[in-house]
Design a protein around this nucleic acid. Structure first.
Length: 281
DNA sequence: AGCTACTCCTGGTAGC
DNA sequence: TGCTACCAGGAGTAGC
């Protein structure tokens, strides 16, 4: 699923085609994509708006809008499972799964495509409101090993659900959490307040390095749905150490990669490298 | 506080 | 071949 590196890749690719453009009209084919905003309201707000800036926060993609030089709210997009965003020349036949289209003043068309319809493209007068409460960006300076250690120790949660919690750290999803925990040799069920300073530092480094490398490789194409906005598969999936490798040998020790379910999520790990926590009665 | 379960969705796939 | 049943899961929410 698109996680921080995939979303960052999308932002970098669509940004040059969209910043500075005006929306001349729009088309909505699936109302729920608008996240509760009515089709009429969405179209009224978008028509004539200029896209000033496109940026990412966690896995959200934000379009800052203006009218007549004054801020005029924004669009907050989320790709969820299968969402894609790309800009096409006028007349390009849209995918049958295209849910929203924005016609631009240079003749190009922005497409929001989403097979499973979980994705969102929400207009909000104050987009920041929708981003309140998110945890730190893991690649920014605010995310330090010391902060992570303190954050882990101040909670008593299993590592896997905690790292998936966007209000703890922003941008990690199921795939990269599994990768990072394996890299740090930490079990997904390990309670956060039992993590040693050394292990917290390993986890911190794993998160930074994994995400950074994935961005450099333009994300991963874990299934037939996700492609980079250019239609190319990303390259990072070839780097997966545990995700989707159930039964295959761990690259570090050779033991078979196991799959368990944690917090309703498929979870991949090496039982030998990632020691199970003590179970207390 | 932190867990599980449920919801939204549909293409892909396993099993017969 | 063609059918059914189940799987994948990000995030929000309800309930315990």
């Amino acid at each position: 699923m698109p996680e921080l590196p995939e979303v960052e890749t999308v932002v970098r690719l669509i940004r040059p085609s969209l910043e500075g453009r005006k929306v001349t009209s729009s088309r909505v084919d699936w109302d729920r994509t608008l996240g509760g905003v009515s089709r009429r309201e969405f179209q009224r707000r978008l028509k004539g708006s200029r896209i000033d800036r496109i940026w990412r926060r966690a896995k959200f993609i934000v379009f800052d809008l203006s009218r007549d030089g004054r801020a005029a709210g924004g669009l907050v997009g989320h790709l969820r499972m299968t969402g894609r965003m790309h800009v096409e020349p006028k007349g390009t036949r849209p995918s049958p799964y295209c849910r929203v289209r924005l016609d631009l003043d240079d003749g190009q068309v922005f497409h929001f495509v989403d097979v499973r319809k979980f994705g969102r493209l929400v207009f909000h007068a104050e987009p920041d409101v929708l981003l309140e409460g998110l945890g730190p960006e893991p690649l920014e300076e605010e995310f330090t090993a010391e902060w992570l250690l303190a954050g882990l120790r101040s909670r008593k949660r299993m590592l896997k659900p905690l790292l998936l919690d966007q209000n703890f750290v922003a941008g990690l999803g199921n795939i990269y959490v599994d990768e990072c925990l394996h890299s740090a040799r930490l079990h997904p069920l390990r309670r956060s307040d039992t993590v040693t300073p050394a292990a917290a530092r390993r986890l911190w480094a794993a998160i930074r390095e994994t995400l950074q490398e994935a961005i450099e490789r333009e994300g991963s194409s874990f299934d037939t749905f996700y492609r980079t906005p250019e239609g190319q598969p990303g390259a990072y999936q070839h780097q997966f150490r545990v995700y989707g490798r159930t039964g295959k040998p761990c690259y570090d020790c050779g033991a078979a990669i196991a799959r368990i379910v944690v917090a309703q999520r498929g979870t991949h790990l090496c039982r030998k490298c990632q020691r199970a926590p003590r179970i207390r009665a």
